[in-house]
């Protein structure tokens, strides 16, 4: 590993100043579970590494505020998975957080990092899309907010400008009852990078939000408003047809060694149908009608 300058600013403003000053020669360090590998392999050779974990404003915290659950940038997967409010409002996010790597990884990896890393296989991306998460960004021109759907751009790319960093992920508390499920395809049951990540949410109004990842350059959100997918009484065949239509845009990698394009496409349909079914079953009964 090449050496670098290690900095640990105390304030967001200081971090922004450093980021702005060094531009692409700076790397942010939160959990480090991806960055340290990239540094060791020489895939990234920054001049400056900016450790965010000593910034007071970004200290690990999960707070409820104005109809949002706000997760600070240095909050790790373990804390997210164990938070009762997140378990209550965003169970599919918990399902995705608990399969990010191993216990050891989850004790370090952050939700913000999982999104900022821009991996098409990021486990938490589909639930964040389904739950309509908002990314809070600090930069030289102050704060701005962005839907996670707009924030994710492509492999390794997110919509951060020079000098910007993510300070928190904000999840709007669902206003209507919702059933949601996260599922993934892996090569073994133990920790693995997923060949498909998929989250499905259905709400009491019959709207289905389905997001999938690892089958193209970025995770994709699709919304189905007709109510057919969410209808517990609609036939499997009808739903399968709608799902197939929704998955037409999937563009699995031709070179991936984790799964072939055909298999990935087929498994999207299988996992999509299964996650939909689970989401419907999880939608609170009394309000489902």
């Amino acid at each position: 590993m090449k050496t670098f300058e290690y900095t640990r600013p105390r304030t967001v403003a200081e971090a922004v100043r450093l980021l702005n000053e060094h531009g692409p020669d700076a790397q942010l360090l939160a959990g480090g579970t991806d960055l340290v590998i990239e540094l060791r392999n020489g895939w990234k050779e920054p001049e400056v590494v900016i450790d965010l974990k000593r910034i007071d404003e970004l200290r690990p915290s999960i707070t409820e505020d104005g109809g949002f659950i706000k997760i600070s940038a240095s909050t790790v997967m373990t804390d997210i998975a164990e938070d009762q409010r997140i378990q209550k409002y965003f169970p599919a996010l918990v399902e995705s957080a608990v399969v990010v790597g191993s216990v050891q990884i989850r004790a370090r990896a952050t939700l913000a990092g999982n999104i900022c890393n821009g991996s098409p296989a990021a486990d938490t991306a589909p639930p964040m899309l389904v739950y309509d998460a908002v990314v809070a960004i600090a930069g030289p021109n102050g704060m701005r907010r962005m839907q996670v759907d707009d924030f994710i751009v492509g492999p390794g790319k997110v919509a951060l400008e020079r000098g910007e960093l993510v300070t928190a992920i904000e999840l709007p508390i669902p206003q209507r009852p919702m059933g949601a499920a996260y599922t993934r395809l892996t090569r073994r049951r133990g920790t693995d990078l997923a060949s498909i990540t998929l989250c499905c949410g259905v709400d009491a109004d019959g709207i289905t939000r389905l997001a999938y990842g690892s089958v193209g350059p970025r995770a994709v959100l699709l919304v189905e408003m007709s109510g057919v997918l969410a209808d517990p009484n609609a036939s499997h065949e009808t739903k399968a047809d709608i799902l197939n239509e929704m998955f037409l845009g999937a563009s699995p990698s031709l070179r991936s060694m984790r799964a072939s394009p055909d298999y990935r496409r087929a498994m999207l349909r299988v996992l999509g149908a299964r996650a939909l079914q689970t989401a419907i079953e999880r939608l609170p009964r009394e309000t489902a009608a």
């Binding site: 290690y6 579970t33 590998i37 590494v49 450790d51 373990t78 216990v103 050891q104 004790a107 370090r108």
Partner: peptide, 13 residues
């Protein structure tokens, strides 16, 4: 109090 992979943590952290 938490188990971590020490290969993925910089000592300065």
């Amino acid at each position: 109090g938490r188990p971590i992979n020490s290969c993925l943590m910089l000592a300065v952290e």
